[in-house]
Design a binder for these strands. Structure first.
Length: 787
RNA sequence: GCCGCCAUGGUGAAAUUGGUAUACACGCAAGACUUAAAAUCUUGUGCUCUCAACAAGCGUGGGGGUUCGAUCCCCUCUGGCGGCACCA
């Protein structure tokens, strides 16, 4: 078979028959929404990781289609983003043009790889008709008070010249380019995802995500249960300009409150502003100049300064000093802690360094001591008692705290969705009127980001100048754009109704298709895209824009694995170990690369590319083709044996594909073919159908060679049904064991135990011994326990 | 440090509910075809002892437990991967 000719022929055929893969909005068949994370189309084309993940989704989608399901398997482009902008700058071209070219390249590559997408639903985040709705979501967030513009310190990447979200900073470095991030204070749009922290945790119960994904999200949100406690600032030495009467802290251990010997506040705490001792000012200045990375790297050696202030412990009225230290984070809890050096490592280290008192309040049995009202109580009892007491006195209450931070949503770049806001001198920030959406990204002369932290759009004075949507007076547009995640948060909704101009997507259509049954993607998105996306969905749910009966957008999440280079290292251009799917496809054919990727190992696994192993798959396809060729016209009448083999294949391959066990599905195909010596026409046709999801070209060609063309594409055939009766093996060989060790084999006829004892080998073992116990599990095994 | 996951031949890996460990493939070895090689086909291939076969013993990271029986369940240790991390 000349695979190049075959591919050309069927590619054309499929192009002419898009209905093969169309998801039907009106259909009585059961729906199945299979989704692969849409790609960011870079200039270097589809890489092997895409090919791997997308092939898995494709095999799965094709299988369910053959099973008679109404399958939605869509594709689109996450087209906004920095690499395209950088490339455009380098080449002195328009990002719009570059992005379009990249999309076209990706689409053609996907078609060649036989991915059965419903192209009538293609979406593109950089299309104004799409980002109109991304902007609309932003306006709704603003109207509901979930976004506001704030001066805040952000992570600034000096290389990308862009502000980063917390999630985009890894080990103090820019996730994209690896440059160490700096701190800058810039006016930024902030989306209050923290308001949804509990919902984002609770909602996981309604999903079928694997434990790893759930835990990654739960850890990221980082909920801690505890209490907020107010400590009165002692009147003795308070400078006049310290306005706060109370210092509020968050603690997970209110039970240890009798062990508090000092307080610590972060250098950014607002009380610090009112302190003018030179020591304090010097310390704060020094702490401010450190980056986050420097602060956390210095965690062995604690630094700090005494503020000069004291606080009163509400439970025993003891006066304790308030210190300032940068080991207390301004961004967590209240930016202040009650220090219990007797039972907290960090507090202990600080107390040692500055010779502060250390008191223990828990005895060896874990019961409270030296703690007046809770002496002898357990941790749990004490926490409840203290919280109740504080509440009664108005000095505190039970409270939760989260690691999750609000989401910095502004980017100082060109190639993104314009934030649809206008600043009016009179009314402040006002959203663009809905009927004025989209705010189209204007074409500019220069896309280069600027060192002053302003978006290139700020230079477009004509575009910036506008009128206030509320009062009509002169006003200015927001010139920052949205982050990458904005467009990808909700794209799966748009596939359900890609051309709707009135709402984000029609309710009935959403009700029909949602939730996404299987969402296939990479682990790197478990705390980024997947969390943001669930948040936006929950927000839309609150607005009533998505169906009430569907509180979570994704049911199952499948993590695809990673393909390493032949050297067992991650593929990268600098290492020169990159495998290009196009080149492999040119050499061996698309079906071989698809089958090999699926055969390498488990779908979630990490596997190294090995071209020798690929040959095994190629040989299998060659053998299959030869077998079909030889057997299709044979007059062979099926035998019982064949029935068993074929039915086992149907059952095994189907079940494996349903569980993303593509490697074992292929193994079962191989095993079946190896054991078939000959086959009749019907059996041959069944085998072709079974291979169709995995090797779409080969299957189509073989199907046609069976003179089946009149029945249409093999991909439109129904998946073969297996006959349970044919799966029963007539001769069952069961093992006979002595003390759990297999010593013989038996074909059971009537009395299994009696027959087993008569086996010559077994006889030898039991002779002269006492049989203590006889275990017979019909169809499974026999075991004699002897002494 | 906390949370989650994993450990099986020379290699990638299978094994449904606790019931024949190593399916399938690679690699390797021998043979067939060939002047020869490639390709293809056939056979063998966990380890130890043995010329070989039979038989036996050992064997799913180490140790222990439950069980007639453990890759699978429980305890513990070691090693590796991933997430979070001065988070009070």
């Amino acid at each position: 078979m000349d695979f190049k000719e075959v591919e050309k022929k069927w590619l054309k055929f499929w192009e002419e028959h898009p209905e093969l893969y169309t998801a039907q909005n009106v259909s009585s068949r059961q729906k199945k929404y299979v989704l692969n994370e849409f790609p960011y189309p870079s200039g270097s084309g589809l890489h092997i990781g895409h090919t791997f993940s997308f092939t898995g989704g494709d095999v799965y989608a094709r299988y369910w289609r053959m099973r008679g399901y109404n399958v939605m398997f869509p594709m689109g482009w996450d087209a906004f983003g920095l690499p395209t902008e950088n490339y455009a700058i380098k080449m002195k071209r328009k990002p719009q043009e570059v992005a379009k070219e990249n999309n076209d390249v990706f689409r053609n590559q996907m078609k060649r790889l036989a991915f059965s997408y419903d192209w009538s639903r293609e979406v593109n985040t950089a299309d104004p008709n799409y980002y109109k709705w991304t902007q609309w979501i932003f306006i709704k967030l603003f109207e509901k008070g979930l976004t506001e513009k704030k001066e805040m310190p952000i992570n600034w990447c000096p290389s990308c010249k862009i502000g980063l979200a917390n999630e985009e900073v890894v080990d103090g470095k820019c996730e994209r380019c690896g440059t160490e991030v700096e701190r800058r204070t810039i006016s930024q749009w902030v989306v209050k995802i923290t308001k949804y922290a509990d919902r984002l945790i609770d909602g996981l119960k309604q999903t079928d995500f694997i434990e790893k994904v759930k835990m990654a999200q739960i850890n990221w949100i980082g909920k801690s249960e505890g209490a907020r406690v107010k400590f009165q600032i002692s009147s003795r030495d308070v400078p006049r300009n310290v306005s706060t009467d109370f210092l509020e802290v968050f603690t997970t251990r209110p039970d240890t409150i009798y062990g508090v010997t000092f307080m610590v506040i972060s250098p950014e705490h607002k009380i610090v502003e009112g302190l003018d001792s030179k020591e304090v000012k010097d310390y704060v200045k020094q702490a401010r100049s450190k980056s986050d990375l420097e602060r956390t790297e210095l965690n062995k050696d604690k630094t700090g300064v005494f503020s000069g202030l004291y606080a009163i412990n509400p439970v025993n009225n003891k006066e304790i000093p308030i210190w300032i230290s940068d080991f207390v984070l301004a961004s967590y809890g209240t930016g202040a802690i009650m220090a219990v050096p007797g039972h907290d490592e960090r507090d202990f280290a600080f107390a040692k360094k500055f010779s502060l008192p250390i008191i223990e309040v828990i005895d060896k049995d874990g019961r409270m001591k030296d703690s007046e009202m809770i002496n002898g109580m357990t941790k749990k009892e004490s926490i409840k008692k203290i919280i109740d007491w504080l509440k009664e006195k108005g000095m505190g209450e039970g409270a939760n705290s989260y690691h999750l931070r609000d989401w910095i949503f502004s980017r100082q770049h060109y190639w993104g969705e314009p934030i649809p806001m206008v600043k009016c001198p009179e009314h402040g920030w006002v959203p663009v009127a809905e009927d004025q959406l989209p705010v189209v990204l204007p074409e500019v002369e220069a896309y280069e980001p600027t060192d002053d932290g302003k978006s290139p759009l700020s230079k477009m004075t004509e575009w910036v100048k506008t009128t206030c949507p509320r009062c009509g007076k002169p006003a200015e547009r927001e010139t920052d754009t949205m982050p990458n995640w904005a467009g990808s948060d909700w794209y799966f909704l748009r596939y359900c109704d890609p051309y709707n101009d009135i709402v984000i997507a029609n309710q009935e259509l959403l009700k029909k298709w949602l939730p996404v049954d299987v969402y296939i993607g990479g682990d790197e998105h478990n705390t980024l895209h997947l969390l943001y996306s669930r948040f936006i969905y929950q927000f839309l749910w609150d607005l009533g824009m998505v169906p009430k009966e569907i509180p979570e957008p994704y049911f199952t999440r499948m993590s695809h694995g990673v393909i390493l280079g032949t050297d067992n290292a991650r593929m990268s251009k600098s290492k020169g170990n990159v495998i290009v799917p196009e080149i492999v496809a040119d050499k061996y054919g698309v079906d071989v690369i698809r089958m090999y990727l699926m055969f390498m190992g488990p779908f979630e696994g990490t596997m190294a590319w090995n071209e020798k192993t690929l040959m095994g798959v190629k040989r299998f396809l060659d053998r299959l083709e030869k077998f079909v060729d030889e057997q299709i016209n044979s007059q062979f009448a099926s035998k019982q044996d064949n029935g068993l083999i074929i039915n086992k294949m149907i059952k095994g391959v189907g079940e494996d594909v349903e569980n993303f066990g593509f490697n074992t599905a292929i193994a079962k195909m191989m095993e079946g073919l190896n054991s078939l010596k000959e086959a009749n026409k019907e059996e041959v046709e069944t085998i072709i159908k079974l291979i169709a999801p995995l090797a779409p070209y080969t299957a189509e060609e073989l199907w046609a060679s069976c003179a089946k063309a009149s029945e249409g594409s093999v991909h439109a055939q129904s998946w073969p049904k297996y006959d349970e009766a044919m799966l029963i093996e007539t001769e069952i060989n069961i093992p006979v064991a002595i003390n759990g060790k297999v010593r013989g084999q038996l074909v059971v006829k009537e009395d299994a135990i009696k027959e087993a004892k008569e086996l010559p080998k077994i006889k030898l073992w039991i002779e002269g011994k006492e049989i203590v116990k006889e275990i017979y599990i019909p169809g499974k095994m026999i075991n004699f326990v002897i002494r």
